[in-house]
Amino acid sequence: MVAKKYRRTTIELDVNLYKRVKALAVEKDMTLREIISEALEEKLAQEEEENDAMNSDFLRENPLTKKIVRTMETFISRDAAILLFIKKCESRNYDPYTITREMVTEEFLSSLCNGIRHLSDVDNTECLKALKAAVGGF
């Protein structure tokens, strides 16, 4: 099992909110860090869902597409990731709604990285590694 990495940060909370969170942590036998992390994870997931709904249906309907685009978003902006993904699908006659794991070859992922490198300083090897991991490897 890979150990999680943490980054120390300082946040200021409203005193009453702090007391309520602390009470909840005691009640649930969790640390403050776990409670806050869980809440942030939920918030991010909710935002992503809303963004997906606003942007492209295929992100909601095809989990594979969503995984790939989400990983691309760690390197480039959301709109750029979606544009690039759609265009690379189009050039191969793939439908982003129905694209399957078998269609996602290393060459396809490399073509995404070739587009990503123009807007991000990530190198191709790292980019490909991240995208491969997102689709479950080869």
Binding site: D79, A80, L83, V122
Partner: peptide, 20 residues
């Protein structure tokens, strides 16, 4: 609607995996 990505790119932090 296709143009927005340039604004997003201008203000996006450097990638999580990047050297920066």
């Amino acid at each position: 609607k296709h143009f927005n990505f340039i604004m997003q790119e201008i203000s996006k932090p450097f990638g999580l995996y990047s050297a920066l």
